[in-house]
Nucleic acid binder design. Structure first.
Lengths: 388, 388
DNA sequence: CGATTAACTCAATTTATTTGAATTATCAAT
DNA sequence: ATTGATAATTCAAATAAATTGAGTTAATCG
């Protein structure tokens, strides 16, 4: 039996790969940037950066954007990501539908598709996934051969590490190693995740968190999920199930957090007074009307949110917390505005550079876009330590 | 202004450094191991491993332990860490005392010292720290020139990242960048941390967590702290204050977690009935006598502990949680045995390879040893991703 | 307009890993 | 007991990718 190492060794090839990622990532955060500046940021020589940039340009990942004169000296040739240099496929599998999105290197969705399904057996799902992927390629000819991988979101729990080959909650998937199954069948590198984690990553690649490396994302899915990003990478936990914040008991014996703060919670509350809010649109309409029952729910939800914030902030000390998922924007905004943020929290600091709570991307496609974002993030950064 | 990169570039020298760390770390987890096996584990060639092992042996960090024949083929020469190959200094600064410990490469304390102080001004503290270090070197001649660094624990909060130069709670330290101050003055690389984080790392280097890479440490210090280890490295949070679990409000409006679960809490409870438990020994004695007031406190504390477990497990999904710090072993054991572990938790899995809650190292020196462990851990691993 | 500064390129060098052939010691089968 | 297979190790040569240093280009400053 081989003793698993904490991390693997390095060689010239792996160094090059890392440096490519680092340069791409640096171009991304800078927008446009010259070679010498990249070299300074990454502690590499300009010569090395030049060589790798020649490679990346050759591969179509970078574009020249003219020279920028800044003070004395030869003006630096500026480089920027080529949005069409690569694509990432995002797939979200639900019991009743499959969503797909194709993102370019800027994290912009260039294709979105959905398909209703009546059964979610692996083979059936696979047929649809391949069909959706083919449809996407049909619309973006350029993406043929330039798709970096597929991120897939499906109902957990599965074992990202440790319990290998553990399947999903979906019927028929219990015995399936979904990651291996899709990798084989789609012919692309696959990353598997749950909705909250994917949503969190979406904000990093194209959203509020592009320059934030440590944050948490509170996600309204079926229940209440939490995606943790630390050093620009997802924190999965030992068994891949970190972020199950909905299961935490509420103060004052009112059950779990997701009893007060989730789609199911508001649906149940409104149903008990004879109102239907299964669709986001219906919920939005009730909110616009100032519906008293919804407002009552929002009061307890805001309280629960404040409590969730106390937990997340004090345990994780993030730069910010982002709230998003399957809720109308207006409702999320209301929650953000009315959450009673705990005073006794490490995050309650003067002159904080970010608000403690922000509204993220919401709606049906959040997790699908996030699935693709997992792939983009991998292309633009290594799961390694912060510099400094 | 230079845009901060997520991670720096790599070159031959940094590769070598990483590979040295990886090999040392692999030898540590294996105990004794041959070169070919290291090569397989780290995805390096045996030749590379041979070269680096020659280096490490030359530096006195590794010892040959004869050949081990295992099946066919030439029996591999076994290598093991040389416990005297390097040392780490741990310093804990408290308002009324300074503790020091010198650990060898096995994580064993070869010297421990303490000194009572009456004031904790930076210059005064420094004098004592240097004196303690000198005393340690005096006892372990071999450690001269072989001390890898100093880990320092002092009352926070400080900014590990972000808020640079932010000082401690100790009087006179507010304006001092303690890390720079000590680095300069001791002449060793310095790592600064709080007590809970240090205690967590102590378990990893020489304790229950030597083969556990993802866990949380609940620490009884002044209040209640939490050290988070993920992928073998500390999770500090964006501003270095992750793990302030004591501030989280308790269910049923009973104040914070540390109101029910901390040294201060038990002291206050016992004082209200006229009993003194400021010293650990006094507390231990009361426990041995089965004191009814202490037992009453333990009941609410166990409940609070179960609640803390629900939070930590569901948010972080660790392999295990370790309980330790300034409490008698017997009290910790009682808490471990009587904590009502939540049923609805991601950690409540069948066939878990580790208990959900374990007792760690306790007592006065825990944090001091942990301070040194920070240095050892850095020598034996990179703050990088898991392999696989 | 010349001096200075900074980005960039080219060619040579350096570092560290990999590759491939040769050597050695053990186990297993005859 | 002998022989062949297997695995660890070493040596020397090759390779990959970084750095170094000298030279070129194009800006700004005085």
């Amino acid at each position: 039996m081989i003793v698993l190492p904490l991390h693997k060794g390095s060689n010239a090839e792996r160094s090059r790969h890392r440096n490519r990622q680092a340069i791409l990532g640096q171009v991304r955060i800078a927008g446009t940037i010259g070679r010498a500046e990249i070299a300074r940021a990454l502690s590499l020589t300009t010569q090395t950066v030049s060589n790798i940039i020649a490679d990346l340009s050759e591969d179509g990942l970078l574009l020249e954007k003219g020279r920028l004169s800044a003070g004395r000296g030869l003006p630096a040739i500026q480089y920027a990501l080529n949005p069409e240099g690569g694509y990432a496929l995002g797939i979200e599998i639900r019991p009743d539908a499959i969503f797909a999105a194709l993102l370019n290197m800027h994290g912009k969705a260039v294709v979105t598709e959905r398909i209703a399904i009546t059964q979610a057996q692996p083979e059936t799902v696979l047929t649809y996934v391949n069909a959706l992927y083919a449809r996407a390629l049909d619309q973006i000819k350029n993406a043929q051969g330039r798709t970096l991988g597929a991120g897939i979101v499906m109902p957990g729990p599965f074992g990202v590490t440790g319990i290998a080959g553990m399947g999903s909650d979906l019927p028929g998937w219990q015995q399936v190693d979904a990651e291996a199954f899709f990798t084989e069948a789609i012919g692309l590198p696959v990353m598997l995740s749950n909705d909250a984690n994917a949503a969190a990553m979406a904000e990093r690649v194209n959203g509020l968190a592009q320059d934030i490396t440590s944050y948490a994302y509170l996600y309204f899915g079926a229940g209440l999920g939490l995606g943790l990003i630390h050093g620009g990478q997802l924190v999965h936990g030992a068994y891949g199930n970190a972020g199950e914040i909905g299961h935490i008991p509420l103060p004052a014996q009112r059950g779990n957090l997701e009893n007060a703060l989730s789609r199911l919670s508001v649906q149940r509350h409104l149903k008990s007074v004879g109102k239907d809010a299964r669709e986001i649109e219906a919920l939005d309409q009730l909110f616009q009307q100032g519906d008293a029952d919804l407002m009552a729910w929002l009061r307890t939800a805001s309280e629960a949110l404040g409590y969730a914030m106390a937990i997340v902030e004090n345990i994780f000390d993030p730069q910010t917390v982002i709230l998003g998922g399957a809720m109308p924007d207006a409702v999320l905004d209301h929650l953000v505005a009315h959450a009673s943020l705990p005073e006794r929290s490490v995050s309650n600091r003067p002159n904080a550079p970010h608000p403690r709570l922000m509204r993220g991307a919401a709606g049906r496609m959040t997790a699908t876009l996030g699935a693709a974002a997992l792939i983009l993030n991998r292309a633009l950064s290594s799961p390694n330590s912060y510099a400094h």
